[in-house]
Design a protein around this nucleic acid. Structure first.
Lengths: 341, 341
DNA sequence: TTGAAAGCGATACCAT
DNA sequence: ATGGTATCGCTTTCAA
């Protein structure tokens, strides 16, 4: 089988303890022996068995990650950042997809608990009751969900929404539509909070949904929005917004001529659509990295207060938002409707 | 800390051995004790520590998976299938993204080796020299790459290409362009093999690239293709094909009026593009599941001959391919250019 | 059918 | 500075 610490010890003419130290705490061993041991370990291709090590140290150097749906491009991009940061910190990543199902998510936490130092739950779908059963099992960091008393990294959906509303106001829109995401989504609630900004501008808001955060939902919602008379629509996320764009194109409705469309997440394909989708970048990759950093902080000092990081957002203005059709020619301001901010 | 087998043993008034048996080999223990032990284990929320178990059994019930780039939508969809199948089989999944880098991939295999029963390498980017150092470490199953003597699941890229060429021939195209994928990609070589089908139809083929399999490559390639005079272009994958579509739209070139465009992978966004992209579905989710099945077969019988599964492909015809501009009106056949097969 | 004891691979404590 | 030994949580002989 694989080469063990005993093999190295024998080959180097020392004890297993010495090998262990030479590799993990080099300063505790005489330079001479250290070099010899390291050379032997190298030549034998020795790699400590993380499971055995974890058994005694209590640390696995593995991180668990659970996402609701890997096929939503937002999560892969977040995972990229997370993965990279974890690797830098010497941690491997266990990934699982719970298929938007809270119960499955809970089961996955159980399954992972013993093999990881902590679990990062992305946009967790668990109900409070489910959460309760799971919170003591293993250190948990939430990404995009706030559970009082627990560490979290959150993206500023409310702020992003406010930016979007301001943007549409500047373009002269007086009536906008919002397409809700999943019913129990914390993220969606945050978006809705930001939507209150519309009151200040005396903008009328029509809300539709809740919808599953999918392309098809956007197709369906587009017709509702048109019927409502809104001149702009903000979708829960880009995947839905792309659905709206597709349906509008199908019906021959000019975007942004007749109606403006915006989404959230800045997924790659938002830039690829025609017209390119206006979107809010909440910083997915950054959030992934921040989640790892937060987890490391938690692991380093379990008694500290639950840290919380809030990442700010940026509105990315593209060709799918423009002046309201009935607004005066100056509504967009001197920069024109499609200028970058 | 967590509840151990000893805790259960004490609470149930039996030895640890009995607890172990009651849970793993129920038939070896008297029904009476079995029930009691199971009840106690349940009520205490006991979960065996997989690391400790793996140490002695040699099996971790973990599977490692390495993909080149999580942000290419093909991989998430493949992972979905893989993940689901792994879970059914009682295996957790370790995922890593090697960022299209063979050396990083090799390092990841090393890092995973001791914690998994086997590693599935998706579209492996390792050179033969790198592979050699890694092949003995842990059972490996290749997905979309053939390494003689090693188990693999491959999607029929060559067959898919032949279907595409036949399709374009039926539409009257006499000159097509192909955009190569990454230089050392096995997948790309398979596509090119299928391209030979063009000879039979006396279709002229212009090849461009190699290109990184990205949207931007498609943008760039579109101009080359137009200059070549080809009436149809097949891209290495959908991500590139979408880039081609975007650039053509930018230049006001009608698709498929002036030129037809096709890709590979049937990513979700291929259907969302306007015009919707014609693409070859190689069966990503299915391939993911098949890879797990193959791995399980390998694990069950290490001495058997390396199994190889070849999955077949289907051409999905959408609105981005049509008759060649200079072809007669009947070129597309009675069904019209956009009918489903 | 059950329990005691050995051992998987590594680390940590206690000697020396 | 180094070696011996106990130990982590579990499975698996070996006896009873």
């Amino acid at each position: 089988m694989a080469v063990t610490i005993q093999d190295v010890a024998r080959a180097a003419g020392v004890s297993a303890s010495t090998v262990s130290r030479a590799l993990s705490s080099p300063e505790m061993v005489r330079p001479e022996t250290r070099m010899r041991v390291q050379a032997v370990a190298e030549s034998l291709g020795y790699r400590p068995n993380p499971a055995a090590r974890g058994l005694i140290t209590g640390r696995t150097t593995n991180l668990g990650v659970i996402v609701p749906d890997l096929t939503n491009p937002f999560f892969p991009s977040m995972l990229r950042g997370l993965q990279a940061r974890a690797r830098e910190a010497g941690h491997a990543v266990f990934l699982a997809d719970c298929d938007e199902d809270g119960a499955a998510e809970a089961a996955l936490v159980h399954a992972m608990a013993k093999q990881v130092d902590g679990v990062i739950l992305c946009s967790s779908r668990m109900t409070p009751a489910m959460l309760e059963k799971v919170l003591g099992l293993v250190p948990i960091v939430f990404l995009n969900r706030v559970v009082p008393g627990h560490p979290a990294v959150i993206m500023d959906g409310a702020g992003g929404m406010r930016q979007t509303v301001d943007h549409l106001d500047a373009l002269g829109h007086r009536h906008i539509a919002y397409l809700n995401g999943p019913r129990d989504s914390w993220t969606n609630r945050e978006r809705v909070k930001g939507l209150r900004r519309a009151e200040r501008h005396r903008i009328k808001v029509s809300r539709f949904g809740p919808f599953a955060p999918r392309f098809e939902s956007g197709l369906q919602a587009a017709d509702l929005v048109l019927a409502s008379g809104a001149t702009a629509v903000i979708a829960y996320n880009d995947v839905m917004a792309l659905g709206v764009l597709a349906r509008l194109a199908e019906r021959g409705v000019p975007v942004p001529g007749r109606i403006s469309v915006a989404g959230f997440d800045n997924i790659t394909f938002a830039a690829m659509a025609t017209p390119a989708l206006t979107t809010v970048d909440l910083g997915g990759e950054r959030a992934g990295r921040a989640a790892v950093d937060t987890m490391l902080a938690v692991l380093a000092d379990r008694d500290a207060d639950a840290p919380r990081q809030v990442l700010d957002s940026a509105l990315i203005v593209r060709a799918s938002t423009g002046p309201a059709p009935d607004a005066g020619p100056d509504a967009a301001g001197p920069g024109g409707p499609q200028g970058e901010p």
